[in-house]
Simulated assay, not measured.
Amino acid sequence: MTDDLRREGLAHWVGRALGMPFSAELSDLTCDAGFRRYFRTDTNPSLIAVDSPPQQTKPAHFVALADYLRRNGIHTPMVVAADTGQGYLLLEDLGDTQLFGVLSSDSVEGLYAEVMSELLCLQQIPRKESLFPKYDSELLLTEMRIMPEWLAGKLLGYQLPAMEARLLEETFQLLLNNAASQPQTLVHRDYHSRNLMIRGGERPGIVDFQDAVWGPVTYDLASLLRDCYIRWPRERVERWALAYAATAEAAGVLEPVEPERFLRWFDWMGLQRHIKVLGLFPRLSLRDGKQGYLGNLPLVIRYVLETAGRYPELKPFSDWFGSQLLPLIEQQAWYSDYRCAGD
């Protein structure tokens, strides 16, 4: 079915779901949501209509996950109506104000306190195995291998010699060991400033949770504090991370852990995520036509080189990236100096 026909079918379905004798009026929302498309209704209050093709997405899983998270106190969009067979959903409208849009040096302390409090609530939710698969080594490794395939190979045209491929696999194994050594909790998997919605007088709304898994305790914290779209000074980030660790210990999410060990967990988990993103953003550009993501790569590169360069075990990877890939990256039209990215 074409996009136009699916939109028409969604409009008819929304009208029926709301008891109207006619199709609902839908306006497009700009969302980078893979195969899903989002629309806003003209009703009062407005709602979000979602076209979620069941062949490419899992609408029934989304509905079950949204319900489970809401029943455990998380402000995900309420599902007003759903036809998971057709892939049509009608959701509560959490508004247009992303955390990203209201962050500043003055506001960040209070806003991060709110969203880290929500993260702690997420991490206290008991596991339901049918909803939260394990974020295991196989999945983490598959994610990191996106980087040599899509950044090095397909974007830059660089094929790794066998020795360099081994260096990457050895680095990836270090990061996998770090992930496995951490306490395991619910992981949103994309907990950052563009997936957290702010509306006055309400708890932060959480969207894009459909890929949630059960994995390392620092993953979402690193996603938030080492956000691919906004950067804060390292000293401030480490202070926030250690304050979160103390709160998580008090809540029973963490056993007592030395600050140095927690920061190593945090740093290395963030590096795993950023290596994945170094491949994911080129894939979104080359495969899916979403060109805007490439402009965010310099900040991700900065995170990768700063973090890897601080640890002797990871410095060979940092040196390789700087000598082999960075000169090719610097020739790209989208590139800007990574050393000041996010400043």
Rank of each mutant, 00 (worst) to 15 (best):
G309I: 05
M163Y: 15
R199H: 12
H192T: 01
H61V: 05
E202Y: 11
D288T: 04
G279M: 05
E249Y: 15
E138H: 10
L47P: 00
L174W: 12
L271W: 07
G289N: 07
E149K: 15
L278N: 01
P316N: 06
Q332E: 09
E238N: 13
W13H: 08
L167Q: 02
T57L: 13
L47V: 04
G205L: 03
E202L: 12
W265C: 02
E143C: 03
P216I: 08
G34M: 08
R127W: 00
Y293A: 05
Y335M: 07
K154D: 01
P126A: 07
V63E: 10
E330Q: 15
G153R: 11
W150T: 02
F209S: 00
S137T: 15
R166K: 09
D227S: 02
M1D: 15
N72W: 05
E129G: 08
D337I: 05
D67H: 14
T76N: 05
K290Q: 02
Q331S: 10
G101H: 09
E306F: 09
Y338T: 01
Q332I: 07
G73K: 07
Q56C: 12
E169N: 11
E8P: 02
F62V: 06
V79P: 02
G153Y: 14
V237Q: 04
A152R: 06
E92D: 11
M1R: 04
D267C: 13
H12V: 10
D3R: 01
E129R: 14
I329A: 08
W334T: 07
W268K: 13
R16V: 01
A162L: 10
V108N: 06
N178K: 09
W265F: 13
G34R: 06
Y303T: 01
L225S: 00
L26H: 02
Y38N: 09
L225E: 13
L221K: 08
Y112I: 04
R71K: 15
S318E: 11
V257R: 10
E260N: 15
N178Y: 07
A49R: 05
N72G: 03
I230Y: 13
S336K: 08
A246F: 12
E249Q: 06
D190P: 02
S52T: 07
C228G: 05
D3Y: 00
G85E: 11
Q98M: 11
D288M: 13
L294N: 04
F321K: 00
